[in-house]
C-alpha cells in the first residue's frame, strides 16, 4: 500500500523540555524509513505524534494529502509495534492478534481465519493457543507484528521493536522483518537507536539529535556523506580532522595536520572539517603511504582490528585486516582513500 505520510513542522514540548522541533519530512510511500537517534533525540515522540498517541503543539501530519493531525489514534488505521510489545496479558496469542479485528466488529469466524493467516505469515501459528507469558521474547515480537498487520494497516509504525532481544535473535528477526515489509510494500516508519538495524532495513534514514532532524537520505548517502560531525560520529566511527581547502598552482588541495591531499570534487576553499572513516585509511604494505605514524593501541574485533595511530600530531582510528595486525609501538605507513574524504563546513 503506497500511502504517503507527510510531517510538516511538528513541534512538541513536555513542560520546559522541547522534545521535537520543526520536524518536516515526506516519508517514502511503500518503503521503510528509519528514524535513528540516541536516547532523548525525539524519535519516539515523533512516532507518537504520527501514530496519534501524542498531539503535536504545532505542525501537521498528512496522509495522502489529508490532514490527520487531530484524528485520534484509533481512527488512523495505523499498525503500531511497541518496544516492549505491549501484548495483552489476559488474552492468548490468537486473541491478541484478533484484537484489531474484534474492535472493528469483524465476525468471529472471519477474524479467527485472518488472525491465523497473520500468525502464519510470521511463522508462529502453532503458538495460537499459548498464553503470552508462555512464549519467548522473540515469539512475543512476532505476535506483536502479526497483531499490528492483521487489519491491513495503512501505515506500519515500529518503535524499537527488536531492542529487547539478544544480538543473534535480533539479527534473525531483522532479516525476517525486512523481507516481510518489502513483500508487503507497506509504508513503514521504524524508530531505532541501532544504526546497523536502520541501515540494513531502511530505504531512507532520518537522523535526529536534540529534537531536530540532523540529516535524511539513503543509508549510503548518510553514511558516506554525513552532513554534520554528529551524524558522522553517530553512524559508525569517524576521524574528524581540522583542515583547509586552498588553491595551489591552479589545483584545489586539502591541507590536513599530517600533509596535503588533492581536495574532493566541489570542495570550497577555506577552513573546513574533514571526516574520514577508519576503513578508508589503509596500511600501505610497501611503506609508501601519505603519512607515517606509530600504533598506540590495537583492538582485535574478530573480522578486523581497530588500531589507534598517532600521526602528524593527530590520533587516527584505522581498520586493519586481521591477517597481520600491527602491535602497539609498530611504525606504519598509511594511505587515505581520497575519494572517501567528506568535507563539512567549519561552522558545523
Amino acid at each position: 500500500m503506497n500511502i504517503l505520510v507527510e510531517a510538516d513542522g511538528l513541534h512538541k514540548r513536555y513542560g520546559k523540555v522541547v522534545a521535537v522541533q520543526n520536524f518536516s519530512h515526506r516519508f517514502a510511500p511503500g518503503k521503510i524509513t528509519a528514524i535513528l537517534g540516541p536516547s532523548g533525540s525525539g524519535k519516539s515522540t515523533t512516532l507518537a505524534m504520527i501514530s496519534g498517541l501524542a498531539e503535536p503543539d504545532r505542525g501537521c501530519i498528512r496522509l495522502d494529502g489529508t490532514d490527520i493531525t487531530r484524528l485520534p489514534a484509533e481512527r488512523r488505521d495505523f499498525g503500531l509495534v511497541f518496544q516492549n510489545y505491549s501484548l495483552f496479558p489476559h488474552l492468548n496469542v490468537l486473541e491478541n492478534v484478533e484484537f484489531g479485528l474484534r474492535v472493528r466488529g469483524v465476525r468471529k469466524a472471519e477474524r479467527r481465519s485472518r488472525a491465523f493467516a497473520s500468525l502464519e505469515r510470521v511463522h508462529i501459528s502453532h503458538l495460537a493457543g499459548r498464553r503470552i507469558h508462555q512464549i519467548s521474547g522473540g515469539e512475543q515480537q512476532r505476535v506483536a507484528l502479526a497483531r499490528a498487520l492483521v487489519f491491513n494497516p495503512r501505515v506500519l509504525l515500529l518503535d524499537e521493536p527488536l531492542s529487547a532481544l539478544d544480538a543473534k535473535l535480533r539479527e534473525i528477526l531483522r532479516n525476517e522483518l525486512g523481507r516481510l515489509l518489502r513483500e508487503l510494500s507497506i509504508t513503514a516508519i521504524y524508530v531505532t537507536h541501532d544504526q546497523v538495524e536502520a541501515m540494513s532495513l531502511a530505504y531512507e534514514m532520518i537522523i535526529m539529535h536534540g529534537g531536530r532532524i540532523e540529516q535524511s537520505g539513503t543509508p549510503l548517502e548518510v553514511y558516506t556523506r554525513p552532513a554534520t560531525p554528529f551524524v558522522a560520529t553517530f553512524l559508525g566511527s569517524a576521524n574528524l580532522l581540522e583542515g583547509e581547502c586552498l588553491v595551489v598552482n591552479g589545483e584545489t588541495r586539502l591541507r590536513l595536520p599530517f600533509g596535503e591531499l588533492p581536495a574532493p570534487m566541489g570542495a570550497q576553499t577555506g577552513p573546513c572539517r574533514v571526516m574520514v572513516r577508519p576503513e578508508d585509511i589503509v596500511i600501505a604494505a610497501d611503506g609508501d603511504g601519505q603519512l607515517h605514524g606509530e600504533v598506540t593501541s590495537s583492538v582485535f574485533l574478530g573480522s578486523q582490528a581497530r588500531l589507534t595511530v598517532s600521526a602528524g600530531g593527530c590520533s587516527l582510528a584505522v581498520d586493519a585486516s586481521n591477517e597481520a595486525i600491527p602491535t602497539p609501538g609498530a611504525a606504519v605507513s598509511l594511505r587515505v582513500r581520497e575519494a572517501k574524504l567528506c568535507i563539512m563546513p567549519k561552522g558545523e
Binding site: 498517541l53 495483552f88 474492535v103
Partner: peptide
C-alpha cells in the same frame, strides 16, 4: 502498564472498548 491502553487505541479500540 499504561502502554496497554496505547496499544489498544493504536489497534483501533475506542476509549470504551
Amino acid at each position: 502498564d499504561g502502554r496497554l491502553e496505547q496499544a489498544a487505541r493504536s489497534l483501533g479500540a475506542t476509549r470504551w472498548q
